[in-house]
C-alpha cells in the first residue's frame, strides 16, 4: 500500500493521474472501515482530507459546498435555505462521525442510503469533478448511476456540489431504528422552490439509486398553482394522503435487514405527508 499526502489539489490530481483508480481518503468513515476489516487493500491511497481547495462553503448567490466539508460544519450553518441540509447533517452517525465524514465521501461512496444524496437530488445539485484534463459539471441525477456506482472517472476528484438557492421551503426526514448512529431505512427530502414554481421530492434508501417522485411533484405543483405560489399552502387531509400515495408509489424498495419493502413504502407515505404539511406553510 502506497500512501500519498499531496499538499494541494493540483498535487492530488497529478497523483491520481499517475495512478488512476487510486482510493481517496477524506474523513475515512467509510474507507477506514473497509481497510480495518480487510475488505479493501488499496494499492495507492491519496489523502485528500486536509486540502484547503475542497473546503469552501459559499452561500452567497449560488451555493457551493466543497467535497471536504464535514457534517459538523454543515450543522454550524444558519437555517433558512439550509434547513434541509442541517436536518440531514444532524441525523448522520454521531458527533465523532459528523466531525470526520464529508459530503465528498458520501458522493464517493454513492450508497443509496447516503443521507446527503437525497438532499442534493432534491436541490437539483451539480456535482463538480476535476482532473488533469479539466473540470466536468454533471447533474446529480446523472452522477449517481446505481448502488455504489457513479459517473466519476478514475482520474477525477469530486471538488464540490453546487446548487441554486431554492429558498426556505425545504425539509429532510429520515427513519431508522433509533435516532443516533443509524443507516436510513428510508429518507426523503422535499423542496418547494416558490420562485420557480417547482416542487422536488427525492427518496433515499428506497431503490438502487436516489429516486425522484415525479408524479408526486406534479401533483403538489398543481395544488400550489391553485392556492397561489406566494401564499402558504393549507394541505387538506385528502391532498396530503394522495401526495403520500404518489411518493410511496415512486419507490422501488427491497426487503433487507433494515426493513421490508412494504414498511419502506408505508413510512415514505407518512414522511411525505409530514413534509408537505411542514413545508407548505413556509413562504419566503
Amino acid at each position: 500500500m502506497e500512501i500519498e499526502r499531496p499538499r494541494s489539489l493540483d498535487g492530488a490530481l497529478a497523483a491520481l493521474a499517475a495512478h488512476p483508480g487510486a482510493d481517496l481518503l477524506a474523513g475515512g468513515t467509510d474507507l477506514m472501515v473497509e481497510i480495518n476489516f480487510g475488505r479493501k487493500r488499496p494499492e495507492h491511497l491519496i489523502v485528500v482530507q486536509p486540502l484547503a481547495e475542497l473546503r469552501d462553503l459559499d452561500r452567497n448567490g449560488a451555493v457551493r459546498v466543497g467535497a471536504g466539508v464535514t457534517y459538523t460544519r454543515l450543522l454550524a450553518e444558519g437555517g433558512g435555505s439550509f434547513a434541509a441540509v442541517r436536518e440531514m447533517a444532524r441525523t448522520v452517525g454521531s458527533p465523532q462521525i459528523r466531525n470526520a465524514g464529508t459530503v465528498g465521501g458520501n458522493l464517493g461512496t454513492s450508497s443509496p442510503a447516503g443521507d446527503a444524496l437525497p438532499v442534493l437530488a432534491a436541490f437539483d445539485a451539480t456535482v463538480v469533478l476535476r482532473s488533469r484534463r479539466g473540470e466536468r459539471r454533471i447533474p446529480f441525477a446523472d452522477y449517481m448511476t446505481g448502488p455504489k456506482r457513479n459517473a466519476r472517472a478514475p482520474d477525477e476528484i469530486v471538488v464540490a456540489a453546487e446548487w441554486r438557492d431554492p429558498g426556505p421551503a425545504q425539509t429532510f426526514l429520515k427513519v431508522g431504528t433509533r435516532n443516533a448512529m443509524v443507516i436510513a431505512v428510508a429518507s426523503l427530502c422535499l423542496v418547494v422552490e416558490r420562485a420557480r414554481k417547482s416542487v422536488r421530492v427525492a427518496l433515499g434508501s428506497c431503490g438502487p439509486t436516489i429516486l425522484r417522485a415525479g408524479e408526486a411533484e406534479r401533483f403538489a405543483e398543481e395544488l400550489i398553482d391553485e392556492s397561489g405560489w406566494d401564499e402558504p399552502l393549507d394541505v387538506s387531509e385528502a391532498a396530503a394522503a394522495r401526495f403520500g400515495e404518489l411518493v410511496a408509489a415512486a419507490a422501488r424498495p427491497i426487503d433487507d435487514v433494515r426493513g421490508s419493502a412494504r414498511y419502506r413504502r408505508h413510512v415514505l407515505g407518512v414522511m411525505a405527508r409530514r413534509a408537505l404539511e411542514r413545508v407548505g406553510s413556509v413562504v419566503a
Binding site: 477506514m32 480495518n36 459538523t72 465523532q96 466531525n99
Partner: peptide, 16 residues
C-alpha cells in the same frame, strides 16, 4: 481538538 474515532483515522494521515 476535534472528537474523532481513532479507529477511523489513518495513522499516516495524523502526521502534522
Amino acid at each position: 481538538d476535534q472528537l474523532l474515532c481513532s479507529c477511523l483515522v489513518l495513522a499516516a494521515a495524523a502526521e502534522g
